[in-house]
Each structure stands twice: as structure tokens, then as C-alpha cells.
Amino acid sequence: MNTSKPILARSINDRVLAGVIGGIAHRFGWNSTLLRVIYVVLSVISVAFPGILVYLILWLLIPEGND
């Protein structure tokens, strides 16, 4: 029985920009649309710059998947 979780990778099929949020949602079994909305709301509340910077860093650090 293989109970391993999917690895953290950017999504190819569930992407809006680079697949970062889609990959995170896939890894943890969350709804990607809801996670995107939460991420945007938190980014706007924090004056957007930190959210954009975090997204860009994650884009560089998380490898592209092969879903």
C-alpha cells in the first residue's frame, strides 16, 4: 500500500500564471480556486508587494511538475 503524498511541484494543468498555487493545492488536496482567492485577499491586505514577491520566489524554487 502506497500512502505517500504527492510531491510539491508547480502544476501544468491547473495554472493561471505559473502553477504555484495549483501545485500547492494539489499537494495538500485543497481547492485551487479557493486557495487563489485566499492568497489574493491576503496579498491585497498586506499591500500586495509581499504576496507578489513570495509568489515569484516560489515560482523560482518549486520545480515544474508533470501532472
Rank of each mutant, 00 (worst) to 15 (best):
V40C: 11
V41I: 15
I45P: 02
F49W: 11
D14R: 11
P63R: 04
G65M: 05
V44W: 02
K5R: 15
K5E: 13
L8Q: 09
M1P: 09
S43I: 10
P63N: 06
I62E: 12
G22N: 05
A9W: 01
L53R: 11
N31E: 09
V20T: 00
G65C: 06
L58R: 09
R27T: 10
S11G: 07
G29K: 04
L17E: 12
I52E: 11
G51V: 14
D14Y: 07
V47P: 02
G29A: 02
R27E: 05
I38H: 02
W30T: 03
I57P: 05
V41N: 10
I57W: 00
L42A: 15
T3N: 12
G22H: 03
S43E: 08
V44F: 13
I24P: 09
F28M: 12
S46K: 12
K5S: 14
M1Y: 00
W59G: 02
L8A: 09
W59Q: 12
V16A: 06
L34E: 01
G29Y: 05
R15N: 03
I62A: 11
F49L: 15
Y39W: 12
N66I: 07
A25T: 02
Y55D: 09
I12N: 04
L8Y: 06
R36C: 14
G65S: 07
R10L: 08
V41E: 11
R15L: 09
I7Y: 11
G22F: 05
P6D: 03
D14K: 11
M1W: 10
I12F: 01
L34P: 00
I52R: 07
L34K: 00
L8S: 08
V40I: 15
N31C: 07
P6C: 08
M1N: 11
E64S: 06
Y39A: 13
L61G: 04
D14A: 10
V16R: 08
G29V: 03
L8T: 08
R27D: 01
W59P: 00
G23I: 07
E64K: 10
R10E: 07
W30N: 07
F28T: 06
I62N: 04
G51W: 09
I7L: 15
S43T: 13
G22Y: 02
W30C: 08
I24H: 07
A9F: 00
P50Q: 01
L17W: 00
L58Y: 02
R15F: 05
L60Y: 06
I12T: 05
A18Y: 02
W30K: 09
